[in-house]
């Protein structure tokens, strides 16, 4: 990634960082926050390399000098990456203690030292608190980059000590356009993007055979639901349940259903560009005539309820069964 690409994808972030580096006004701590797949890690790498590069250009670091290569491979003595240890669920206090010890010394090769904490929300409460004093007033030449997907899980006191750089997620339209260029199957593409809001995840889903199957089964179920409740229930036992055999898959199934009703709502609100099941337009239009927008909202909240139950480890088939019966009642 270079600066040009960054400013295309994350305009605000790029502008803040670029200006700060150019004016040599880099703050001592930044919090890089945003959903997965928005380039936080790459940005951290870019900033660090730009700082250490021997021959930086306007576009970014050269990527070929000693420093750039060592940073990329994680071997630079003045750049320290901290992440949850392999297999561990959290960043422990010892890791932060090590970091602080390391940063009590000046840089080995230059006046600067950079540390990068990935998945910062995984820090234990002790780790976070020990970091507090440290990132409030570090030695000069220190730069802290904290990366997180869940800013709300960090302590208020940590956040207020950092400059928060919010990474905006790519819009669903942008992702689907990118996927469309890849030539992925169109009917699958939009649901996949709507479910994941993430390019790589969506591509993975699209390529999975199971997902295509899941989609058509959900559509089948919804069709059955329009016709008769009994048929839909039978369908759950015979076809649906064997295919959606764990809670993870059932979640996907529920989300797919959710987007069907959202499509109905979008149709009611005359927002056709939002519709996910584009190839099912005829059926959607037909159902719209007998399904008011209020009913659609109701159906959606039922599905979200079901998802909550699923998250609370209720048996997937039971959740589905209950949902279908309740959905049958909204008609």
């Amino acid at each position: 990634m270079d600066w040009q690409q960054l400013s295309k994808e994350q305009q605000t972030v790029a502008k803040v960082l670029r200006h700060a580096i150019d004016r040599k006004e880099l703050a001592h701590a930044y919090l890089l926050e945003g959903p997965a797949g928005t380039g936080k890690h790459e940005t951290a790498m870019l900033v660090t390399q730009t700082l250490f590069c021997e021959q930086p250009t306007d576009l970014g670091p050269c990527l070929t000098c000693r420093n750039c290569r060592r940073i990329a491979s994680g071997n630079h003595p003045d750049v320290i990456w901290v992440a949850p240890e392999e297999g561990a669920a959290s960043i422990k206090k010892e890791q932060i203690a090590y970091l602080m010890k390391e940063f009590a010394y000046r840089g080995v090769e230059s006046g600067r030292k950079v540390f990068i904490i990935e998945q910062a929300e995984k820090m234990t409460a002790q780790a976070e608190n020990s970091l507090l004093k440290f990132i409030e007033e570090p030695h000069s030449g220190t730069l802290a980059l904290l990366i997180t997907e869940q800013i709300h899980q960090l302590l208020d006191t940590i956040i207020s000590r950092c400059q928060v750089l919010a990474f905006v997620p790519l819009s669903d339209h942008a992702i689907s356009r990118r996927m469309d260029e890849q030539g992925l199957p169109k009917p699958l593409l939009k649901p996949a993007v709507a479910l994941t809001h993430d390019y790589e995840e969506a591509v993975r889903l699209c390529k999975e055979e199971w997902f295509a199957e899941a989609r058509s089964q959900v559509l089948q179920l919804l069709k059955g639901l329009c016709e008769s409740l009994e048929a839909a229930q039978l369908y759950i036992y015979e076809k649906f349940a064997p295919n959606f055999d764990d809670n993870q898959k059932m979640t996907v199934g529920l989300d797919l259903m959710l987007y069907w009703y959202r499509d109905l709502l979008s149709l009611h609100l005359n927002r056709r560009e939002e519709i996910v099941y584009e190839d099912q337009m005829d059926r959607l239009k037909e159902q719209m005539l007998s399904f008011s927008s209020n009913q659609a909202v109701q159906a959606m909240s039922l599905i979200l309820d079901a998802r909550k139950q699923l998250d609370a480890h209720v048996n997937g088939v039971s959740v589905m069964e209950r949902l279908v019966i309740r959905l049958g009642g909204t008609r």
């Binding site: 605000t12 502008k15 803040v16 960082l17 200006h19 700060a20 004016r23 006004e25 703050a27 207020s160 000590r161 950092c162 400059q163 928060v164 750089l165």
Partner: peptide, 10 residues
Amino acid sequence: LSVLDQTAAY
């Protein structure tokens, strides 16, 4: 002040 700092940089 953090926000001001950031805005000034922006």
